[in-house]
C-alpha cells in the first residue's frame, strides 16, 4: 500500500483547469483512483458532470487516453476497449506483430467512471452485461445520488426524503418517497471478483480498494459516495467531512466483497444518529420543519439500521 507522500508524487491523470464545481467530490475520487496504479490506464466516462466539465473542446483535463460515447454505456464502452486490447495481445501471442503503440511489457488497465444516473438507472443493463462477461475493468460509480448534470433530478440512488427537482418537497410530498436501490449488493450478486463501497474523505480506503481492484484480471466495481455541494445544498468546504459523516452514521458503510467474501472495512466507534448527516444538507432541510418530516427521518433511520444489520450479518459480524 502506497504512503501519502508516494501517492502525491504519482502522475496526475486528471489535471487542474477543469470546470467542475468547487467542492465537487468527483475529481478527488478520479485522482485517487488513478494514482492507485503505475500501470497505463485507459479511461471511459458516461455522459455527466465529469465528462462535460473536463473535456470542453478544444480543451481537455485528461492526461491519459479517455473516451466518452454516450450516457448509458460506460461499461460497454470500456468493455470494447478491453476487448480490442485482449484481441491484439492474443494475436501477438500467436505470432502476429503487436502494434508498435502498445507496450508489450505493460499491463494496461481499464477504468470507467460513471454517475449514479448512468449506473443505477439507465446504465445498469450495460454494467450487468459487462461484468457477467468478465471483462477486465474497474467500474467506479461517482455516486452523488441524483442527476446533477441535468439539474438535480432523482435517480434510484437518491435516498428517501431527498429534495430533487423531480422529487421536490411540497405541501403534500416530503421529497423522494422511496428508498434507494442497493446497487453494490446487486453487482456483488453477479459473483464478480471484487465489489466495494468507499468515499472521497478516506484516501487510504479508496486508494487501497482501487489498487486491489486494478490488480484483478476481471470485472471490479467500486461505488463511491461522492458529495455534490450544489445538489446536496451543503458547504463546498465540507466534502470530505460530509462523506465521513455518511460512514459514521452507517448511511454509507465502507465494505468490500472479495471473491464472495463480505468484509466490513470500518465500524464507527459510536454509530451516529442519521440526523447529524442530514442536517448540514439543504436537500433534507424540509424534513426538520414539522412532524411529517420527523416521521420521514424516523423511517430513514430505520432503513439505515436495517441495512446496517443486514450488512453486518453478511460480513459475519455479530
Amino acid at each position: 500500500m502506497a504512503r501519502l507522500q508516494e501517492l502525491a508524487e504519482r502522475r496526475t491523470a486528471l489535471t487542474g483547469g477543469h470546470r467542475l464545481c468547487p467542492g465537487c467530490g468527483e475529481p478527488i475520487v478520479v485522482r485517487q483512483v488513478l494514482m492507485s496504479t503505475d500501470d497505463p490506464v485507459i479511461a471511459a466516462s458516461c455522459t455527466g458532470c465529469l465528462e462535460v466539465s473536463t473535456t470542453i473542446f478544444p480543451y481537455t483535463a485528461w492526461a491519459i487516453p479517455w473516451i466518452h460515447i454516450a450516457f448509458e454505456n460506460a461499461a460497454a464502452t470500456i468493455a470494447g476497449i478491453e476487448a480490442m486490447y485482449k484481441a491484439l495481445k492474443t494475436k501477438a501471442a500467436k505470432g502476429e506483430p503487436l502494434p508498435d503503440y502498445i507496450d508489450p511489457d505493460a499491463n494496461y488497465k481499464f477504468v470507467a467512471f460513471a454517475g449514479d444516473g448512468g449506473t443505477y438507472d439507465i446504465g445498469i443493463q450495460s454494467l450487468s452485461g459487462a461484468v457477467e462477461r468478465g471483462h477486465q475493468f474497474l467500474y467506479v460509480c461517482l455516486n452523488n445520488e441524483a442527476y446533477m448534470n441535468t439539474g438535480i433530478q432523482r435517480s434510484s440512488a437518491t435516498p428517501m426524503g431527498s429534495h430533487t427537482t423531480t422529487s421536490p418537497a411540497g405541501s403534500v410530498l416530503p421529497g423522494k418517497t422511496m428508498h434507494r436501490k442497493d446497487l453494490t449488493a446487486i453487482i456483488a450478486a453477479h459473483d464478480i471478483p471484487y465489489a466495494a463501497q468507499s468515499i472521497p474523505g478516506r484516501w487510504r480506503d479508496l486508494t487501497t480498494k482501487a489498487a486491489k481492484a486494478l490488480e484483478i484480471d476481471g470485472p471490479t466495481f467500486i461505488n463511491v459516495l461522492t458529495p455534490c455541494p450544489l445538489g446536496w445544498r451543503c458547504e463546498p468546504a465540507i466534502t470530505p467531512e460530509i462523506s465521513q459523516l455518511a460512514v459514521d452514521t452507517c448511511m454509507w458503510p465502507l465494505y468490500e466483497v472479495e471473491y464472495g467474501e463480505w468484509k466490513l472495512n470500518y465500524t464507527p466507534k459510536e454509530k451516529k444518529p442519521l440526523d447529524e448527516y442530514l442536517e448540514p444538507q439543504g436537500r433534507f432541510r424540509h424534513l426538520f420543519r414539522d412532524e411529517k418530516g420527523a416521521d420521514v427521518r424516523k423511517r430513514m433511520q430505520e432503513f439505515v439500521d436495517y441495512k446496517w444489520e443486514q450488512l453486518r450479518a453478511r460480513c459475519g459480524e455479530e
Binding site: I69, A76, A79, G80, I81, A83, M84, L88, Y101
Partner: peptide, 10 residues
C-alpha cells in the same frame, strides 16, 4: 457501443 470503442482502441 462496444464496437465503436473497440474501433477507437485501434
Amino acid at each position: 457501443s462496444a464496437c465503436t470503442s473497440a474501433a477507437a482502441a485501434g
